[in-house]
Each structure stands twice: as C-alpha cells, then as structure tokens.
Amino acid sequence: MPETDQIEITLNGESRQVPANCTVQKLVEGLKLPSGQVAVEVNRSIARRSSWPQTCIQDGDSIEIVHFVGGG
C-alpha cells in the first residue's frame, strides 16, 4: 500500500485529509501545535496525551483540538 493513502477526518469542524497511518501524536506534531498546551478529543472522547502515539486516526473520525484562550 503506498504511503500516500489518505483518509478524511473532521478536524475542528472542517473536513481534512490526513495520511492513513496517522496517529494523534503525528497530527498534533504535523500542525506544529505545542503538545503541552492542547487537549484532543476523538469522537467526543478525550484522547489522553500519553495515548497519542498509539491512537490511530480512522477514516471519518471527528477530532477536536482545543487550547486556552482569554476568559473570565
């Protein structure tokens, strides 16, 4: 199977293509996000940071990546 195989996910509400073998870890690194400052949800369940390298992203997954912004 060529490495370029892509799957489609919904990331922060928008559809996006990622490589078929992508993990949450690779996704966060690929987006150049500071891993210590974001939280990730896969299909409405928290993906704990320690599980990112083993969490494979599947076709059709809905992923949310959040961080802290100003608030009261």
Partner: peptide, 19 residues
C-alpha cells in the same frame, strides 16, 4: 486566573499564546 477552552484556530496561527 480563569481561562476559557476553545478550538485552536488552525487557519490563523499568528496569534501569541495566552499561556
């Protein structure tokens, strides 16, 4: 201090991080 939780804006990454 209180902070809010929101989606990371993946299209605009120029903003300085709050933290």
């Amino acid at each position: 201090v209180t902070v809010a939780v929101r989606r990371v804006d993946l299209s605009d990454r120029s903003q300085q991080s709050l933290l």
